[in-house]
């Protein structure tokens, strides 16, 4: 009597134990499956192809976008743009004489010249006489890019003299070719001679370097210029403006670009350079062009108004 229940008890116990063991085993299997799945997800099925340097090539084209919000871009979109619109807005009541429309060179109805380039009459400089398009909320003048440019004279003797300028421009701009996988980022470029001048320049030889800054890097450069360089520049009162009665119809006044030069002594004022100025063979001066979307008669003045919103001073001589 007593043995049977004991045996039964044992059997029951063993069944319970084995059931527990089975459950535990099932759990273990489930965990193993989960871990295996995770491990599978982590390891790529096909190993990545390697480039010539042995570095893995990702499956997709990785492109680096903005890594921070540029402070001056915020300032432009929140404050400067509204003000520039209010300053440059022209009120045109219904009684205003409408703008004269300039006819195109060829008759647009004529099928024989349908696909021909058909600019308005007035010659190749007619665009300088064209008034700026009326200001609306979406056509306010905006900075498109900043170009830095320098010519290194010693390059005529040996092109290795360009290396210092290239390094300085890379440090100042932070740009390199195809940086972040962006196809349109050109980085620091070499400028070559355009024409043959006897005893001085030959066509195609390297003469200097230039770099285009766009987007966040452009606004960062603008901030560096107004916060580190201009305040410490000697005898600097501001960018020079033309005399009051100067024509607004010249190419420079109508193309919506403001340019100025920095002397070689200003290079050491950039914080990216002043840290290790000794590493550069010499200091380089540079031309800086602020290129905008404005075009037409007197566009340059509107760009000056825009730049003064970024605290760039202007003086009349």
């Amino acid at each position: 009597m007593s043995a049977a229940p004991a045996a039964l008890k044992n059997t029951v116990k063993t069944a319970a134990q084995s059931a527990g063991r089975v459950a535990k085993a099932a759990q273990r299997t489930r965990w193993r499956q989960i871990l295996e799945r995770r491990a599978k997800a982590l390891t790529p099925r096909n190993p990545l192809k390697r480039d010539e340097y042995g570095m893995p090539i990702p499956h997709v084209n990785v492109i680096v976008r903005d890594t921070a919000q540029p402070r001056l871009a915020d300032h432009y979109f929140n404050t400067v743009r509204d003000d520039i619109m209010y300053m440059s807005y022209t009120h045109t009541p219904a009684s205003t004489k409408p703008q004269r429309s300039i006819r195109p060179t060829y008759d647009p109805e004529d099928p024989y010249v349908k696909h021909r380039y058909n600019p308005p009459i007035g010659g190749h400089m007619a665009w300088t006489r064209k008034p700026m398009s009326p200001v609306t909320f979406d056509s306010v003048v905006e900075l498109e890019r900043i170009q830095l440019h320098t010519m290194v004279k010693e390059t005529l003797a040996s092109r290795s003299h360009l290396l210092g300028a290239i390094m300085a421009f890379r440090a100042i701009s932070g740009e390199s070719q195809y940086a972040g996988g962006q196809r349109t980022t050109e980085g620091v470029q070499i400028v070559r001679g355009k024409s043959q001048i006897q005893g001085w320049v030959r066509k195609g030889i390297p003469l200097g370097v230039k770099v285009d800054l766009k987007g966040p890097k452009m606004y960062e450069f603008l901030a560096t210029l107004t916060e580190f360089v201009f305040p410490r520049l000697r005898d600097f009162n501001g960018l020079q403006m033309p005399r009051p009665g100067a024509s607004l119809q010249t190419a420079s006044a109508a193309s919506g670009v403001v340019s100025f030069g920095l002397p070689a002594s200003a290079m050491s004022l950039f914080p990216q350079i002043e840290y290790n100025l000794d590493s550069y063979p010499k200091s380089y001066g540079m031309h800086i062009h602020f290129i905008t979307n404005a075009q037409g008669e007197g566009a340059q003045n509107r760009v000056r108004a825009l730049l003064s919103g970024f605290q760039i001073p202007f003086v009349r001589v």
Binding site: M85, Y86, Y89, R100, P134, T136, F137, D138
Partner: peptide, 29 residues
């Protein structure tokens, strides 16, 4: 006039302004 969009701080026009189509003949004065 050719106005692509209504400027801020102006009265709304009841009839939308005509928009210039590039390539077409400009509107006569």
């Amino acid at each position: 006039r050719v106005h692509a969009a209504r400027a801020l701080a102006t009265a709304a026009e009841s009839v939308p302004a005509p928009v210039a189509v590039p390539g077409e003949a400009p509107a006569p004065t």
